[in-house]
């Protein structure tokens, strides 16, 4: 069990408390949480729900790489990356990133880096369900 990073992909509801509690550390005074939730509109279209799919084994590896580079690059102490898969309704949490660091700047920067990198490299796909159909985000074959 790795004590500095906590990576999870789950089809169950994600817990902000679990991520926050994981990163808390006596040596850290700055804790940053990013919580991505499902919003009701995208590009003028009404969203009913999202469905996430993942290549889980590879996604976990990519998330670990991101987590470790956060710790190295920004002098962060601990990081939790949790991502939901399956159907996710409006206001529900799709992703949580929690980072702790000695001071706030490193925690903010590491958290932003983590979500940016996650969106670039982690094999997770999102399908938007609109009122008249559904489509895979970013995929226009």
């Amino acid at each position: 069990m790795d004590k500095l990073i906590d990576i999870k992909i789950s089809d169950k509801v994600l817990s902000v408390d679990a991520c926050y509690n994981f990163v808390l550390d006596q040596s850290c005074g700055g804790n940053v949480l990013f919580v991505g939730t499902v919003r009701d509109m995208n590009k003028g279209e009404v969203i009913k729900k999202l469905a996430f799919e993942s290549y889980v084994e590879m996604a976990i590896k990519e998330m670990k790489k991101i987590a470790y580079s956060c710790l190295e690059k920004f002098d962060a102490k601990k990081i939790a990356l949790h991502h939901r898969i399956g159907d996710v309704g409006l206001e529900e949490i799709a992703v949580i990133i929690a980072v702790s660091a000695k001071h706030r700047k490193a925690a903010f920067e590491a958290c932003e880096f983590a979500i940016d990198e996650l969106k670039k490299s982690v094999p997770i796909w999102k399908k938007e369900y609109l009122e008249n159909g559904s489509y895979w985000v970013n995929a226009r074959p």
Partner: peptide, 10 residues
């Protein structure tokens, strides 16, 4: 081997 279409996590 896996084909990875454009990702869209988060």
């Amino acid at each position: 081997i896996a084909i990875i279409p454009p990702v869209a996590g988060g």
